[in-house]
Design a protein around this nucleic acid. Structure first.
Length: 650
DNA sequence: TACATACAC
DNA sequence: CATGGTGTATGTA
């Protein structure tokens, strides 16, 4: 490893996240792309920081290498026994009884923009700004333009690149249309972002006596007919594999992996580990440089070394993935663990300016917390220096806070201790939320939430989703351990009683939601859509930002197709059994009132929000937790509680 | 608890 | 000119 050819071809040693091949990048002149990226980056503060990080990674790799070199034959035999045991245990837990479909929209944001403005068709398009691109269409990808790449570099690669700023309200509108289709195949589908979702199609296949391939074709056709957008799908016995499969024939394609161990092993064996969700640039680098691992098959072969170098958690993740195992259950919902707000600005050391930024961020965070009725007791200040170094400073309080004043006073103290500094980003995060059963009010809120959630997560509203489950989301970490993520672990958890929910697991798959994005894919990424705030935010927050979606796009709400299948609210996804007649009426009234209010105060949303923490139910994403609030007044009577499983809250 | 990392999207 | 924002998990001290 060392210095490859830094002298002759320096660009080869500058590795960025967006230089990996993804879907649509086949005919790209990779060397030219790499060279342009290097030339445009060289000498910048960002570049220097990347070099510094690479140097640390190199040291870490060398340490691990040395650790391997010290292993004796005996050590290796010992670790091999441990590895073999884990492999047997994991294999014994293999579940081939489910059929999961992962749906991934093709270049989602860019596709929506082209649909909205047909004159963009055929032109290379990037959604985002000169600083950052969220998604590029396939025309642009031919030039090496990709999500997560700064716009000014993309323009160098493709001088005729057309830029369109993000319009999240549009993406949410189209995303909702796709979710209406998903719901017909799996009412409990898991939306991980605006453009991705996991559907358990086991029952659909069984009940209709059709193959998973037919279901995938039908679903993709339905999405195309109803949205004029294309998507790719992957079908496999678990979510981890389904996700990998949806990338195989992208765009506008599908790949079905049968529920047969032999087929799975043949598929996974030659699969580059980087294709697996949870294995990112760093983990890939470490496994390749330290152990020569590039594929899942090699990961199994080197399992003894993995056991010698990583934590149990990480080992389980690696072994599971190498065997093609993954989560097969539908996760329960989980509660939000933190909420944050951060902003990048042109670097400055002007303290009054920095305190002003802090004020804005505290205000933003406080507003978001009010929307979900959250009170937290740990505040974390995040700083990024002008040289891109990131620092965090945390403080835990005795009492739970939410107001801008409380947040700002503590944040100011934290910041003051760090100055003087030249900064380019300031962020605030609150965590350790009050469990409050009713922090704000209605005791029922939570309950309801849970309900809601059940639906799919995502989407809707309230829900949060996220968490629970498993899959992918998280990642493992690397270091020396990573944890696994998904599946594997999950199996056990999954098998527990869903009723109690455990939440332990969390996250994962589901999560997507929050972010917005859509990105996806291909190997790593395709689009990234960044954004952030949850969908809900969008709705709510939009306030300031967008004009109110509904006014522009008839979102679901306007359609008022309130009760899907007679029990699922089409606006927020909440489920109320048919017998809850009164409650449903109230719930409908709530949405109606909400819409009316919004219209009245289209421009005052922010104010509105502050006054009523309620959030409109809608939002989606949010994670759970308090979000619930949404329930409208309906809560009055409703003992709905017992319908949900309630979790713990943490 | 505090902080740093990795990762997803 | 110019390299994002939100959330979760884990390791380590």
């Amino acid at each position: 490893m060392g210095t490859t050819s830094d002298g002759d071809r320096p660009w080869e040693s500058y590795h960025t996240v967006y230089t990996n091949a993804k879907a649509g990048m086949d005919g790209v002149d990779k060397e030219r792309v790499q060279r342009v990226i290097y030339e445009m980056s060289k000498g910048s503060k960002y570049f220097e920081n990347e070099q510094r990080k690479e140097a640390f990674l190199k040291q870490r790799i060398e340490r691990m290498h040395a650790q391997c070199a010290k292993l004796t034959t005996n050590d290796i035999a010992h670790f091999q026994m441990i590895a073999d045991k884990r492999i047997l245990e994991s294999e014994a837990a293999r579940d081939l009884s489910k059929i999961w479909l992962h749906s991934d929209m093709d270049a989602f944001y860019a596709a929506v923009e082209m649909l909205d403005n047909p004159s963009l068709k055929g032109k290379p398009l990037a959604v985002g700004s000169m600083s950052m691109i969220c998604t590029a269409n396939y025309e642009a990808r031919k030039f090496g333009v990709r999500a997560a790449m700064p716009g000014f570099i993309a323009r160098k690669l493709c001088p005729n690149l057309v830029f369109v700023p993000t319009n999240f309200d549009k993406y949410m509108y189209y995303s909702e249309m796709t979710r209406k289709v998903f719901r017909r195949y799996d009412p409990y589908f898991i939306a991980t972002s605006l453009d991705e979702a996991y559907l358990n199609i086991t029952d659909v296949c069984k009940e209709r006596g059709v193959s998973s391939q037919e279901v995938a074709e039908e679903l993709r056709n339905a999405i195309f007919e109803e949205t004029s957008l294309t998507c790719s799908a992957g079908v496999a016995p678990n979510r981890l594999l389904a996700k990998v499969c949806s990338d195989i024939n992208k765009p506008n394609g599908q790949f079905i992996l049968p529920n047969e161990r032999k087929a799975i092993m043949a598929f996974i064996s030659s699969l580059p580990i980087r294709k697996i969700g949870g294995i990112g640039k760093v983990t890939e680098h470490i496994l390749r440089d330290v152990l020569g691992i590039n594929t899942c098959e090699e990961m199994l072969k080197k399992s003894a070394y993995l056991c010698a170098l990583f934590s149990p958690c990480s080992i389980d993740f690696f072994i599971s993935a190498a065997l093609g195992l993954g989560s097969t259950d539908t996760p329960q919902f989980s509660l939000r663990k933190s909420m944050s707000s951060e902003r990048t600005f042109s670097g400055t050391e002007d303290q009054s300016l920095l305190y002003q930024k802090l004020d804005e961020i505290a205000d933003s965070l406080s507003n978001d917390m009010q929307i979900e009725s959250l009170f937290g007791r740990t505040l974390t200040l995040k700083l990024k220096t002008a040289s891109f170094e990131v620092r965090t400073r945390a403080l835990s309080l005795q009492k739970y806070i939410q107001s801008k004043e409380d947040i700002l006073s503590h944040a100011t103290r934290l910041l003051k201790a760090e100055l003087p500094l030249s900064l380019r980003l300031i962020g605030l995060r609150m965590s350790h939320f009050r469990d409050d059963k009713h922090g704000s009010g209605d005791p029922m809120q939570k309950t309801i939430t849970s309900f809601i959630f059940s639906g799919d997560a995502s989407e809707n509203v309230l829900c949060d989703n996220h968490s629970a489950g498993t899959d992918t989301s998280d990642d493992p970490l690397i270091g020396n351990d990573l944890c696994f993520q998904d599946d594997q672990n999950v199996p056990s958890l999954g098998s527990r009683h869903p009723e109690l929910v455990d939440e332990q697991c969390f996250n994962n798959d589901v999560d997507g939601w929050k972010k917005i994005d859509g990105f996806k894919s291909s190997a790593k990424t395709d689009e990234m859509e960044m954004y952030s705030r949850t969908e809900s935010n969008v709705e709510v927050n939009e306030t300031g930002k967008f004009p109110d979606n509904r006014a522009v796009y008839p979102s679901t709400r306007e359609g008022l197709a309130f009760w899907i299948d007679d029990y699922i609210c089409s606006l927020c996804g909440c489920e109320l059994p048919p017998s809850f007649i009164e409650e449903r009426q109230e719930h409908s009234d709530y949405h109606l009132a909400e819409m009316l209010q919004k219209e009245e105060s289209t421009n005052n949303l922010s104010k509105l929000m502050q006054e009523r923490p309620i959030d409109k139910g809608s939002s989606a994403t949010g994670t759970s937790r308090k979000r619930q609030k949404s329930s409208p007044k309906g809560s009055k009577h409703i003992p709905i509680d017992f319908f949900f499983k309630r979790n713990k809250e943490v």
